[in-house]
């Protein structure tokens, strides 16, 4: 019983080239190096920022963070107005964006009829795809005039007894910056919250429905209270984005380094001072101070993102575990 292939002088087995471990080893190392390039990137960013800001760190020390004089001519640099501006604009953004985003996420996962969900999600993704500079353009030419002419005077008239809504109205202002940042972080908070709510096990909902609860009661009792840690993570993630928003804010916040109570007054943020002054920084100390502003911004966003990722990941993992 000679096999059919015996008539061919060379069998297929012999024609195939001998395998070599070489290709596997090289390919594995290549992909490993590429994968670890993200670690290299983190280190690279930290190192560049640290190295280039060492002059300013040396000269101003801790006072860089708690003095508010920013005077390039006298070479005196304190970043407090920018830290203040970043925090306040982000806070305004969160106050506006968090309720809207979470309500939208609840609507998308719990309340909306099925046919409307996917189109809505697509629209929110489209909002996320609008470049920051274009939102800034819209902010400068559409939103700011509208705020100046309609919204701010009304706020001043009705809530003027609060120090937040006093003083002259320019249009470009801390409040305008906060609103534009809010628009920018709406999609991310909405989509992460939606993911969080979707990972709530159905058992939770069924149990509440079983007790005769209405749709909203199910959402409130079974879903929202279960998901609150994860939702908090989504909010912190939004905060991380808000802190680093650059172009749109730069275009509407007014770019004035000052600390005043009124939200109608112009402000300045960490990111926008870099964007505005970096190419004008003529002296080494000035440039170094701007790098230190970058270092502060980097440190804060890394810390905030770290917390947010841990919150979100822990939540998604534990509730996925609960399903199994």
């Amino acid at each position: 019983m000679i096999t059919a292939t015996a008539s061919i002088p060379e069998s297929a087995q012999e024609r195939m080239v001998a395998p070599s471990r070489f290709g596997d080893v090289i390919f594995r190392w290549l992909t490993l190096v590429m994968a670890f390039s993200v670690l290299v990137l983190v280190i690279l960013v930290g190192w560049q920022l640290w190295r280039n800001s060492s002059l300013a760190i040396h000269k101003f020390g801790f006072h860089f963070l708690n003095t508010s004089k920013w005077d390039p001519v006298a070479e005196e640099f304190g970043a407090l107005p920018f830290i203040y501006g970043t925090l306040i604009s982000s806070l305004i953004a969160l106050v506006i964006a968090v309720p809207l985003s979470i309500a939208t996420a609840v609507f998308l996962t719990e309340l909306a009829p099925m046919w409307i969900r996917q189109p809505l999600v697509s629209l929110i993704e489209m909002l996320a795809a609008i470049p920051s500079v274009i939102l800034g353009l819209w902010g400068v030419f559409v939103m700011v005039p509208f705020l100046r002419l309609a919204v701010f005077p009304w706020l001043k008239k009705t809530l003027g007894f609060l120090p937040l809504f006093t003083g002259p109205i320019y249009g470009v202002s801390m409040l305008a910056g906060g609103i534009i940042v809010a628009i920018m972080i709406l999609p991310i908070i909405t989509s992460v919250s939606r993911e969080i709510l979707r990972s709530v096990p159905d058992l939770q909902r069924e149990a509440a429905y079983g007790l005769g609860a209405t749709r909203w009661e199910v959402t409130r009792i079974a879903v929202l209270s279960y998901a609150k840690n994860g939702l908090f993570g989504a909010v912190v993630l939004g905060l991380g984005r808000a802190l680093g928003e650059t172009m749109a804010v730069t275009m509407v916040i007014g770019n004035t380094p000052q600390i005043v109570a009124s939200l109608f007054a112009p402000g300045y943020t960490l990111a926008s001072v870099i964007a505005n002054e970096f190419t004008e920084a003529t002296t080494d100390v000035y440039l170094s101070a701007l790098f230190e502003v970058g270092l502060v911004l980097f440190g804060v966003t890394i810390a905030v993102n770290l917390i947010a990722q841990l919150l979100v990941k822990t939540f998604v993992n534990t509730s996925a575990g609960a399903v199994q």
Binding site: A4, T5, A12, R15, M16, V17, P19
Partner: peptide, 23 residues
């Protein structure tokens, strides 16, 4: 299997292909 193990001879590949499909 032949090609990714280094067999390039087109005529041979065609011949094996037909044979394997017949088998």
């Amino acid at each position: 299997g032949l090609r990714l193990n280094g067999v390039r001879d087109r005529a041979y590949l065609d011949e094996r292909m037909e044979k394997a499909l017949r088998m």
